[in-house]
Amino acid sequence: MKKLVTGMVLVLFFVLCAGVSVCLAGKTYDRVERDGLVRIGLMYNSIPAAYFNENNEWVGFDVDIAEEVAKRIGGYMGKDLKVERVKVNNKTRISFLTSDRIDMSTANMTHKRERDRVIDFSITYFFDGQKILAKKGRFTKHEDFVGKKLASMQGTTSEKNAVNLLKALGDPNAEKNVISFQDEPSCFLALQQDKVAGWTTDSTILIGFSAKEPGKYELVGDFFSDEPYGIGLPEDDSKWRDSVNFAIQDMWADGTYMKIYNKWYGADTEYYFPMTEKIEMWP
């Protein structure tokens, strides 16, 4: 009898486990409007997109863009939205979206089709491309890196691109020569200490880091991939996606976008990166 009871308790436990799986996610737009709160995923380790400065303040291009988007969406709703900043990294920026921990992810994220299977993206809000950073005066072109080691960050598109580049240039050990770290500082440290010949990722990140030690590093060769950044959004939530897209376009139209852009990437900053493209506009 006692055994039967314990057995039943066990079964009940498992059934309960299954029962908890209620879908708690509402439609994002309505939820944001109801709660007056938008939760934004931001990196904390990426200069100058989103990082902690000397006073431990969380600042950066992505931070300003995200705040502005939130402010404008609040404007469409006719209320002041509170912003909750959530720290994400390359491991968490997508899973936080799929599991409804955040409403949007402004986190150096290239719009890739493979990613588009699980989440949605806004229109491109930043145009970057991948380059290779190396110590000054050692390399002149991509071919020089064949047989050498490149650092990249695990779980990024640049990792795959780097392998493909080395393969295309005829490196038989391309996969082994691209070493993947867990974060950007580790990559930079590896480059600093000559553990790798180059570090490859989106060029603005490279510029941001190399500005720490001016004159010691240089970008080698041309862009070898396009990295259109989109704001990551929950899958199949078109009302929310529309409002984010409209916010980006409105920012561009009234010049706010360029103001933020120049604050971080303008000619008089240490992260100078000229704007060559245009945000997609819908009439």
């Binding site: 904390y44 380790n45 200069i47 990082y51 902690f52 400065n53 000397e54 720290k87 994400v88 990294n89 491991k91 968490t92 867990q182 974060d183 950007e184 500082p185 580790s186 930079f188 440290l189 600093q192 880091f209 720490k212 030690e213």
Partner: peptide
Amino acid sequence: AYIIGVFELTTVAQMLNNRLMIYP
């Protein structure tokens, strides 16, 4: 917990290292 980005001692150290660059 550093791996999933909890702000404990190791993560903070990595972060500071990131900002200071030359004092690992």
